[in-house]
Amino acid sequence: MAMSSTMRRADGSLVEVDHKRPTDAAFGVVFFNGLGSPPEEWAWVREYLPEHAACVGYNRPGHGLSSPLPGATLEEQFQIVDELRGHYLEGLPVVLVGHSLGGYLAAAYAESRGGAGLSHVVMVDPTIITDLKAFAGTLPDSWARQHLLLESLWAATGLNVLRPIGAFSEHYADEVKSRLIEYHALPRTWTTSYREYMAARSYPPVQRLAVPLQVATATKGTNIAKHRASQERMLKLSDRSWHHVYEDATHIGIVAEQTHAKQLAELIVPGSWE
């Protein structure tokens, strides 16, 4: 069973962590959340992992109980992951799994560390940084920014507790659903997400990975051909890469719906897909 706690860093700041390490752990998993999502978004995926999997989910700076880190660089974000690995997953081969913006962060972290101690990367409907840069100033970019600001305003009024984000509330068990509603009711969630979104537009694209790569793409509700082609570009990051397309999954549903979560869990287990 996963435990929620905080990890205190050398400077006294906190990182909120959702972790589990069984005594017979054979490998570790670090989950990178999507924009505006807490570790609970991985609840069903974790449920379908084998008992010998050690898992670490965490809130990035400014989210949940994690201390803010204004203007945090990518390297500062990656140092947190280094500390999480050292504290909770020492001695284990580690799988990096990220959804949406977290998919980019997982791959970028793997590239920055040269694959040391890593098993493979799983990018789940990842944000494509080159696309994000190309969208800057366009209508989709404007809509995304307005959405985050409006969610922050809605949370500040306290009314979004009565109108939780439907894509989340539909799929999870009641206990997880309640935690998600509480998380999304915090204005801080959305103001931090807005800052993350703006920062991501200046992130460098990932160039090359030294480890295998799994890319899982959700196409429901998208321009299928365009979205699939964009995601397929990620396959060039590794000499060993696989693409899995889920035509009946939405961007949120690919992690939130049990059927898809089970399929993602199979991609996470080392050696199960080779």
Rank of each mutant, 00 (worst) to 15 (best):
Q77L: 15
F78A: 13
F78I: 13
F78W: 13
F78V: 08
I80E: 08
I80V: 13
I80W: 08
I80M: 07
I80Y: 05
V81E: 02
D82R: 12
D82A: 05
E83W: 02
E83N: 09
E83Y: 07
L84M: 06
L84C: 07
L84S: 06
L84W: 07
L84G: 05
R85Y: 07
R85N: 02
R85H: 03
G86D: 06
G86Y: 06
H87R: 14
H87I: 00
Y88L: 07
L89A: 10
L89R: 06
E90V: 01
E90Y: 08
G91L: 00
G91R: 12
G91V: 00
L92H: 04
P93C: 07
P93R: 06
P93K: 10
P93L: 15
V94I: 13
V94G: 00
V95K: 11
V95A: 09
V95I: 10
L96K: 02
L96C: 07
L96F: 03
L96Q: 02
L96A: 09
L96V: 04
V97F: 01
V97P: 00
V97G: 02
V97C: 05
G98E: 04
G98K: 06
G98Q: 06
G98T: 08
G98H: 06
H99W: 14
H99E: 05
H99A: 02
H99T: 13
H99K: 11
S100A: 07
S100L: 08
S100H: 12
S100V: 09
L101H: 04
L101P: 03
G102S: 02
G102H: 07
G103M: 12
G103D: 04
G103W: 14
Y104I: 15
Y104K: 06
Y104L: 11
L105T: 13
L105K: 01
A106G: 00
A106P: 01
A106Y: 07
A107E: 13
A107Y: 11
A108Q: 10
Y109N: 02
Y109W: 15
Y109M: 09
Y109E: 04
A110Y: 12
E111H: 03
E111K: 08
E111Q: 14
E111G: 04
S112N: 11
S112V: 13
S112L: 12
S112M: 06
S112D: 03
R113I: 13
R113T: 14
G114E: 12
G114C: 12
G114N: 14
